[in-house]
Structure formats: C-alpha cells, structure tokens
Nucleic acid binder design. Structure first.
Length: 279
DNA sequence: ACGCCCACCTGGAGGC
DNA sequence: TGCCTCCAGGTGGGCG
C-alpha cells in the first residue's frame, strides 16, 4: 500500500483527529518492528499532545509538544486505522495491531502491520534533520524545485535501468514500484533504458509524469478518504485504476496500440510496461 | 562508489 | 480441505 500518495493520504486522514489532541494511553503490543521499540516508548509518548503531522518521503512525522517527533514508516503492509470510542470497544484488537494510541477525546489510532517492515522511532527535533533514516535522501518529487534538470543531474553517469533508479530513494523519494511503473508508462519511457540517458526533454517528460501520477493518486485517496475515515476506517486504502501495474497479459490501454502489458523482473521487483509505447 | 541479491515477515492467491 | 509455491506497495546490508 504505502508509497508517497498513500502516506500523504494517511497524513491527511490523521491530522483532523490527532492534531490538538493528547495521547492518554499507548499500548505497545509488539516491540519487534523493523526498528525495535524501546520498552519505555509508551511512557515517553503518553501525556504528549500532537501539534502537527508532516511527511518526508514515505515517512510520517508526528510532532509532539515536548520537542520530539514520532517518525512512522508503514513498510509494505503497515496501516493506520481510526476508531471512535464506541467502535474501538466493539472491535477487538487484531493480532497485528502493534501500537495503539488512545486520544483524550476517546478516539483510537491503531498501527497495524502484518509483515512488521514498518517502524516507529521517537526523535528529538534538534537531530531530526540529520537522522540516519533521512541520510542521503533525494528530493521530494512534488516540490516545485524538482524538475527535469534536477532529475537528469541525479541520473548522470548511472548505468542502472531507469526503473531501478526511480525506486532508489537517493534519486528521489516517495516513488515505489507501482508509481515507477505508471510514471514510465505515462512518459513513454522503457523501464530498461539506462538511467543516464534520461536528460533534456525526456527528463522533463518523466518528471511531469511522476508528478502527475502522484498528484492524481493523492486526489483519488482524498476522494475516498471520506468513506474510510469513519470508525474502523483504514486510512490510505483506496483503489486507483492503473494503466500497467499488475496488468500483465492485459491489453495496453493506449488506443489502437494492440500490444499486451508485459512483466519483467528488475532488481528483484516486478516491472509492468508496454514494449510498444515505451522506448 | 555502484549495482545486484537477498533477507526481513506474514498472508493471500492459485495449482494440484 | 490441505499443502505447496509464488508473490506482495520497502529498505538496507553485504557482496563482487
């Protein structure tokens, strides 16, 4: 689930329920997330007010009123679910609800992560910017400053296929397997093309495609969020109709193309593309 | 330094 | 029904 648009959707869904509220109780039901939770984690969060929620790359930054930030990553299977007081009682905790926040207005947020590739780290704001997790990260794709020239500069000299380069968070952040495939399709660029050949007009096209797929997906998330923010709602869960992702063997959506979407494996990940529309 | 491979962990889908 | 294999939206460590 969670690439940039999904994380952003979760952020927007959590904000109205958490910002300005206080954590009255925190249950840490499993400590062995990707980064193990310290035993004293709960006591450091309990009693704190939430002052804001930001996003950097695929990380949520939950700002607390004591100058600390709770960094949350959803990994592959992480979700945040919201329950009002009544519904929380009628819905018993799932075995993968690893961290549960009870807010001072009775609402509850559950961090659920079956595969436990996600993490939560509490960091003092002074050291947040230099935190190991953010070291070497590339630019935010939705920043105005991110354009074709920026991307081309980051791809210069790199022989890896462009698809693999897009997944590398040092190139740019937030793009994962789905949106890498979708952006390359929209831009008409082959996923096998050597990264350093993406420059000039082609780089501009790819950047435009990346922004477009991410923004459209955030909009889709926003439009379905209303249905999911209700009790028990799973934030960030929404259906987007993909052009190529997970559509191997299905006709390419380009009018009159007549080709079939193909799947190949690059750097251990599935890539979906149209060999005719993408060069 | 770069690029590739794999492990981390659980669950769902599909084949037999 | 059950068992087996494959696959999954991310990341980072280790290796050549």
């Amino acid at each position: 689930m969670p690439e940039l648009p999904e994380v952003e959707t979760v952020r927007r869904g959590l904000m109205p329920r958490l910002v300005g509220r206080r954590v009255v109780r925190l249950q840490q039901r499993r400590l062995d997330l990707r980064v193990p939770l310290p035993a004293k984690f709960a006591s450091k969060v309990e009693g704190r007010g939430v002052t804001g929620i930001d996003r950097r790359a695929k990380y949520l930054l939950i700002r607390l009123d004591d100058g600390q930030t709770l960094i949350v990553h959803l990994g592959m299977s992480g979700r945040m679910t919201l329950y009002d007081a009544e519904t929380a009682v009628s819905h018993p905790l799932d075995r993968h609800d690893h961290v549960v926040f009870d807010m001072d207005d009775g609402w509850q947020v559950r961090f659920n992560d079956a595969r436990r590739f996600g993490l939560m780290v509490l960091v003092a704001d002074e050291v947040l910017a230099t935190h190991k997790l953010f070291k070497g990260m590339g630019p935010e794709p939705l920043d105005d400053a991110f354009d074709g020239n920026v991307l081309a500069a980051r791809l210069a000299g790199r022989k890896t296929p462009i698809k693999a380069a897009l997944l590398d968070q040092k190139t740019l952040v937030g793009v994962g397997n789905i949106y890498a495939c979708e952006a390359l399709f929209l831009a008409g660029i082959s996923p096998r093309r050597s990264a350093h050949t993406i420059k000039g007009e082609r780089a501009g096209r790819l950047v435009a495609a990346i922004k477009k797929v991410l923004l459209r997906s955030i909009e889709d998330g926003g439009s379905t969020l209303r249905d999911h923010v209700q009790p028990g709602g799973e934030l960030g869960y929404f259906q987007t109709r993909f052009n190529v992702y997970d559509r191997a063997g299905i006709a390419c959506p380009t009018r009159d193309c007549g080709q079939t979407v193909r799947r190949l494996v690059q750097a251990g990940r599935s890539t979906f593309y149209c060999a005719r529309c993408q060069r």
